[in-house]
Amino acid sequence: MVKAVSLMMFVFPLGVSVAQAAGTLDGMGNDRSMLSTGDSQLDAGSVGIYGPNIEPKFGTASVEAVASWSSSCTPIRSEFTYSQNFGWRWAISGSSAWFDCSIQVPQGSILKAVGVEVLDDSASADVTMQIIKASFLATDYTDLSTVSTSGQSSTPQYLFNDISADNVTMDYRQNSYAVRIALSGDDTTRFRGVWAVYQRQVSPAPASATFNDVSSAHPFFQYIEALAASGITSGCDANNYCPDDPVTRGQMAVFLSRALGLHPWW
């Protein structure tokens, strides 16, 4: 069974594994009756979408996604207690029920969007999702974008935040990034899974050239410099790249092995 999740112009086919309910508690002690929605794809047991089933791709043309369970998220306040079942998390007492979920996508990629599976059955409170950036040694974080649910519904929903227009380049050398989810102080608001959608890009051209025969005015300067900075090429000699020379099969093997980080397990 396949669930298609649409995000603006992006569509991601995500595999969903659905287990059949078997009484109030299953063999692991999870209470299925608490999460019944009438939709077999959203009921407890539809957990396959949070596993490593989204194939990684290469190149700058494709949009990719990583996903994780709510169990990977950290409660960041001591003023509340929480509970969980079938991956869902919710507060059961206290205030400031906040969870931080780390965003881990490739260095230098563009963060396009974040999505969270939520349940908002509260008549007075909403589920709020922030994308935050914390710079190292800074005293506070930066709120990159915030969205919230609107209205009350007993059916789980996907809360998406499309920030593709903001052109957020992920720089882990100086920053860390997280999704902050704020819930009410009871089980009427919950969350279960988090997605981060990203797109790879080629690094910007440096100010000075690495090779004598590839100046900053060369049409392929940015791309040749990216290969050199990534350790994929060291040029044709100590000072030159030889951009117009043909590539041998041996040189191609070096390029591909270094680019893909080939290291078979044996």
Rank of each mutant, 00 (worst) to 15 (best):
G45S: 13
F80Y: 09
P13E: 14
M129A: 11
N53H: 04
V5F: 07
L183W: 01
Q84V: 03
D245L: 14
V127S: 02
I131D: 01
D126V: 09
G51V: 10
F221W: 00
F160T: 05
Y177A: 00
S96C: 01
M28P: 00
V11R: 15
G261I: 08
F12H: 11
G94M: 12
W266I: 10
F160M: 10
L262I: 15
P156C: 07
D39V: 04
D162V: 03
M34D: 09
S184P: 01
W88Q: 05
V214Y: 01
S17F: 10
L159D: 06
A228Y: 13
L227T: 04
I103P: 01
P204R: 14
F80G: 04
A259W: 11
A226C: 08
S70Q: 00
D140C: 02
N53Q: 15
R89I: 00
M28W: 13
T81S: 15
K57T: 14
G51T: 13
N30I: 08
C101H: 04
S95E: 12
Q174I: 05
A182K: 03
T248E: 01
S36K: 04
D39F: 08
W69L: 03
C242I: 07
D43M: 11
A21D: 12
S230V: 07
S122D: 11
L159S: 06
Y241R: 05
S96K: 07
V66H: 02
S164M: 01
M252P: 05
F86M: 06
L7W: 09
W98C: 03
M8P: 00
S36H: 05
S40P: 04
V16A: 14
D43C: 07
F80R: 06
R200A: 09
R249C: 13
S257M: 09
A196C: 11
T81G: 12
N30P: 08
D186F: 02
M170H: 10
A4F: 15
W88F: 06
Y241I: 01
V47N: 11
T74F: 06
C73S: 15
M8F: 07
L111I: 03
P156V: 00
F86W: 13
N240P: 07
L256W: 07
T188R: 13
V214K: 03
G250H: 13
Q104V: 13
A61T: 12
F86Y: 14
L159H: 04
G231Y: 14
R77S: 15
G59V: 06
S257Y: 10
F221K: 02
A134H: 10
R180Q: 09
F99S: 07
D31R: 00
N161S: 15
N240D: 10
D237V: 11
S176N: 08
K57G: 10
D120L: 06
T146R: 09
Y241L: 05
D140E: 05
A19M: 13
G15M: 08
V254R: 00
S17I: 12
D245P: 02
G94D: 07
H218Q: 02
T155D: 11
G23V: 09
D162Q: 05
C101G: 10
A125D: 03
L183G: 02
I110P: 00
S17V: 11
V179S: 06
S122L: 03
L137I: 02
F136Y: 14
V63R: 10
M1C: 07
L256N: 12
Q107G: 04
W98Y: 13
Q157N: 05
L137W: 01
Y158G: 05
Q201P: 03
P13K: 09
P106W: 08
W266H: 08
H263M: 10
T146W: 06
F211E: 04
